[in-house]
């Protein structure tokens, strides 16, 4: 089963709960030099009362054709056949940041040891039938992890406001 992270931007308020849950799950301490895997932000386009405001939460999109995989000179990244997540083993990571240059969503970060780290979709949890930490915590169910089939179904039904990415480049 292949999964896709979906963000319903109408339900997101950019609160950061997902980002905190991610740090809790992955023991990330940004002040000690860890990068964050997930970021929340607000984009205000225009200054009038009804001008659009978008709240978002972004992390690795686990692109179908993930450009980071080809970008890595050491072969650290790969697709997990079971979940479709873009997973990694950074034993041979040389800290060259090539994956960062390949990623359209600024997902790869580099930790205290200079090696690449990023969202792994909470793959161990998902394998056990649990939700990723960010999805589990979301107070408004704005973030979800859906199967490829469900995603296509939702798209066919044109359920509004769905947002998911597959990298174009």
């Amino acid at each position: 089963m292949s999964y896709i992270f979906v963000l319903d931007t109408k339900r997101c308020i950019g609160c950061g709960a997902c980002a905190v849950a991610c740090m809790d799950q992955n023991d990330l301490e940004p002040r000690q030099g860890d990068p964050v895997f997930r970021r929340c932000f607000t984009v205000e386009k225009g200054e009038n009362k009804y001008d659009p405001v978008t709240y978002m939460s972004m992390s690795c999109m686990h692109c179908k054709d993930a450009p980071c995989i080809q970008g890595c000179p050491s072969g650290c990244l790969k697709k997990d056949p079971e979940t479709g997540f873009t997973v990694y083993d950074n034993t041979n990571c040389i800290g060259c940041h090539s994956c960062a240059m390949a990623c359209p969503f600024a997902a790869p970060g580099f930790g205290r040891e200079g090696k690449m780290v990023k969202c792994d979709g909470c793959i161990e949890r998902v394998r056990q039938g649990l939700q990723p930490a960010c999805v589990k915590v979301c107070p408004y169910q704005a973030l979800s992890l859906v199967s490829q089939e469900e995603f296509e179904q939702r798209n066919r039904e044109k359920k509004a406001r769905l947002l998911a990415y597959t990298a174009l480049i």
Partner: peptide, 11 residues
């Protein structure tokens, strides 16, 4: 600021 490079490259 390596982290923004991929967004700029893709853009």
């Amino acid at each position: 600021n390596y982290r923004i490079s991929g967004i700029l490259k893709s853009g």
